[in-house]
Simulated assay, not measured.
Amino acid sequence: MTARVGIPSSLLSFLYYPTWKTFFSELGAQVIPSGNTTREMLDLGVKEALADACVPIKLYFGHVQSLIGKVDYLFIPRVVCLNKETTYCPKFLGLPDMIRNSFKKIPPLIDIRLDVREGWNALLKAYQQAGLALGASRGTIALAYRKAMAVERRFFSLLQEGWQPLKAMEILNKAIRPQKPKGRLVLAVLGYPYLIYDRYISVDLLGRLKQMGVEVITMENLPPRVLYRQNDNLDKRPFWTLGDLVLRAAHYLLRHRRIDGIIHVTAFGCGPDSVVGKFLEMAAHECQAVPFMSLSIDEHSGEAGITTRLEAFVDMVCRRKEVYV
């Protein structure tokens, strides 16, 4: 019988789902994603997760709940470090443990540890553990790993061409290459991918900006080698991976790309975000006074409120551009 592997469509799946799907599919498993976020998922997550957890973690719990009873395994990797320098939020490190101890009836977890600091072949060893959990041979696992890494490279190259993850996944699946539309404004939308690209929790922020004639740049559209060369003039580099990348993306865009404004999307109650947001605001003020807005999102965020703020910000940036250009 073909093993069914469930992958919650939240957190880092916006960046690594093509990799994970390819790997498990090449092993002969049926990959089952939890799908788009719904109100029911969010309500389930709020009920199951710790009260002081941020909304992305609550949402992840809801996605896990929606998969229980439908799959034989849950793939919940322990993502620690992928760049040899910074680490992910502690909630990422403890995610498998939180899930395992929060649900009474849950399928076996494939909770490999992804930490490239453990050696040049650390990722291969981690994926070998995942494959062995499904009973695959080492030769089959090695071939599946190579194919998964090839898909990952193609996917990230699409992101750096300016596509957003969901559209890049569509291009990968259908082998199409549509033309990217140009906008009357270019805004940088900076924040964690699981906030920006989740259409439900972000109230389809990117789609609404597109309808307003805005061209969006996110940190995933920038080559990592460029970001890691940025000197952000801080005495100490931010410790957490995604916060560090958000700040570096802001400095790069302000110095080397013409943008009309910055929108920082943050999760309510996220400590690192409160620090990063202040540095983003200071950087925008110092570099030609680029308009800056922060949007805080939680499980109570309303569509009307966010839409009104977006419309007001875009209108203000348009008026400013007409005056100064």
Rank of each mutant, 00 (worst) to 15 (best):
I262G: 01
A284F: 01
I176D: 00
G243T: 07
N233E: 15
D232I: 15
G271N: 10
A312Y: 01
L280P: 00
Q230H: 07
K182I: 06
I217C: 06
E281L: 05
T218Q: 05
A304C: 08
I297N: 02
R257C: 11
R258K: 15
R309V: 07
L185M: 09
R257L: 14
W240G: 03
Y197I: 03
M293K: 09
M219R: 08
G191F: 00
P181A: 14
A289H: 12
I201F: 04
L245W: 09
V276T: 13
Y252V: 08
Y192P: 05
D204H: 09
K174R: 15
I259T: 03
R199Q: 14
S202V: 05
D260W: 01
N233H: 14
T241Y: 14
L234F: 12
L172I: 01
R309Q: 11
E215D: 07
S274N: 12
N221K: 05
N231A: 13
M282W: 06
S202W: 02
A188V: 03
Q288E: 15
W240F: 13
F292V: 11
S296N: 10
Y197S: 00
S301H: 09
R248V: 04
N221A: 14
C287A: 15
E170S: 13
L247C: 08
L187G: 04
D235W: 09
L227T: 05
K180P: 01
R258E: 14
